[in-house]
Design a protein around this nucleic acid. Sequence first.
DNA 1: CCTCTATGTTGGTGAGACCAACACTAACCC
DNA 2: GGGTTAGTGTTGGTCTCACCAACATAGAGG
Lengths: 146, 146
Amino acid sequence: MDETPQRLVAKPSWLITQLAVHARRLVNDGFTAAGARGYHYRILAALHEFGPTSQARLGRRCRVDRSDIVAAVNELAEAGFVDRAPDPEHGRRNRVTLTPNGLHQLRHMDTLLDQAQDALLSPLSTNDRQTLIHLLTRVLAHHEPQ
Amino acid sequence: MDETPQRLVAKPSWLITQLAVHARRLVNDGFTAAGARGYHYRILAALHEFGPTSQARLGRRCRVDRSDIVAAVNELAEAGFVDRAPDPEHGRRNRVTLTPNGLHQLRHMDTLLDQAQDALLSPLSTNDRQTLIHLLTRVLAHHEPQ
DNA sequence: CCTCTATGTTGGTGAGACCAACACTAACCC
DNA sequence: GGGTTAGTGTTGGTCTCACCAACATAGAGG
């Protein structure tokens, strides 16, 4: 009952954006349990993988606007997950560093995130998941500025 | 340069939500050219496909909260795309109807939307598009309350 | 030296999804 | 029939995410 219009269901953009709603809900349910949100995970992940950097670079890596990085780093710094200090060899730049507590939080969020991935793709076989990931990666790569 | 963390790229939820960003951008660029937004299209499409209904039912069909339907129907009614009148056989309910102008706007948005779909999936062959749509439909169906 | 670019920061906007509360109506049940 | 329950429209919020304009300031390049 209360069927959704064929005009919507047939559009790839509908499928993707609606599925993104469910994905975000699953992920955020986990993250809020850890007192965090998406931007936090992106930043912690980038710091762990590439080491300390400036906020601007962080934003470019995580696809987050530099003005939004400010707020997110504020929150992470206040929680002790990140350390923000002026870059010694550059007056204007900040140097954001992952703290041990931040690494711990990152690992915690990782397990929460893995559960969400599983819940998200539960109806698909391992093979189907692979093909879906492959196709999505191709399409996304095409739209990333690179 | 400025690579994105592997932790993100490997997550299906990242692929889906990031692709949804691009999808929304493509779609909205078209819609704003028509002075509209996503909610408007959903409502017009539902009215065209299922005929006049109440706002609550409209919301259930389009996956839009009933409080958000109020604002969207306000905008559509002010533009003359939709007619809102109290349901004669139900004191509380409203009866929302698609006007001729609304149908015209729907058709206009349809062509804009088709262009966006094409731009979105441009890197994929017809076959790959089919598979992607099929997989997305399956996953989405699993998460819809039905 | 002067211009151009990059950086951090503040303060907005907008879409979309969602929630709580209220007034009121309809439908249901005893 | 009367009281309870469920549904409807509406107001007024919240949150996340994405994005933009402006500004002060620092570094890099000519």
